[in-house]
Design a protein around this nucleic acid. Sequence first.
DNA 1: CAAATATAGTGGCATATACCTGTAAATTCC
DNA 2: GGAATTTACAGGTATATGCCACTATATTTG
Lengths: 180, 180
Amino acid sequence: MDGLPERDASSVARSGKVGNDRKMEKLEDSIWAHCSSSSVRRASRQLGQLYDDAMGLTDLRGTQFSLLTQIGYLQEPTQKELARAMVMDLSALGHTLKPLIRDDLVELVPDENDRRAKRVRLTATGSAKQAELVANWREAQRRFDAVLGAERSAELRRTLSFIASEDFAKAYEAAGKTAD
Amino acid sequence: MDGLPERDASSVARSGKVGNDRKMEKLEDSIWAHCSSSSVRRASRQLGQLYDDAMGLTDLRGTQFSLLTQIGYLQEPTQKELARAMVMDLSALGHTLKPLIRDDLVELVPDENDRRAKRVRLTATGSAKQAELVANWREAQRRFDAVLGAERSAELRRTLSFIASEDFAKAYEAAGKTAD
DNA sequence: CAAATATAGTGGCATATACCTGTAAATTCC
DNA sequence: GGAATTTACAGGTATATGCCACTATATTTG
């Protein structure tokens, strides 16, 4: 589950160990050059750091800002709905909401029709904080588009959106059954 | 830092709250449809779950498998080199290696020339475990390519590879200075 | 050569994430 | 209508990740 990041070439050459294991090198070329999951994860780590830095976040993480935004957009979603939108495990979402609730940015309110469910709402403080950071995000995103280019950026988003969709998950699961 | 995942449309429609805040909806359309960082993160969460499931991992996480693979490929990298290849914070890497070291899949050995540095090595157990899971990964990746298509899959990897690169990070930082 | 600066790693702290278990509530089935 | 099944959430556990502070070591500077 690993590719051949270009930056590794210098490390390999520097360590002078290339000749030691030709078999491993060959496997890497044919197998690991193609692992999409770890590719996406590496990009995610990179962007997470760059965006946080560019947005100048001090008391919030980029992921928390993303959560606040989605909550505002979905207009008091249930935790289940929110987790689904964030492509997150429900339990993980619950944990992740804790500091936001603690800091009075978010509050949970009972659903009117289903006693099992709780709805997630931005507090006034939460709304203000979210609005405050919009310009920061704009700047971070501007840089991304500047480097990657508008067209490539849009194409990437389309592909990622599809990957994050339930349709993709369904098709992926189905692809497993077909090969059985 | 959030886009408009297609799956949200049904939630919005169902909640019957679309009309309540036209201003927010408009902002979302023009701003949040474009956030690349959270797009990548959502895809990462999705693939993380799908790959782990498809690989049938029980005692290892996909991320750990990825680490083992990279260690094997880099041939006793220093922790610093490994962190760089994984696009991870060095401290985070140290933490993440802990369970692998604890379970005798990985060991740290002093560098011969620099007393500050430690090299990361696969143990025999670690190598065996890594080799054991190659077929599982192959299956997981096959499904991905089947759903997304080989061409689109390759294009995505190229883009993600660039994003995860140091060149991208440099250009991103430079884009911030230009606008100042 | 010694001081200043940079680097590699360690541990702490806090958020991020997912699987698991259990409970209460809602829905489905007979 | 009652039993069986499914659903939403809470809490626990463990890995994942990044910033921070600090120490030891290496490199650079004057």
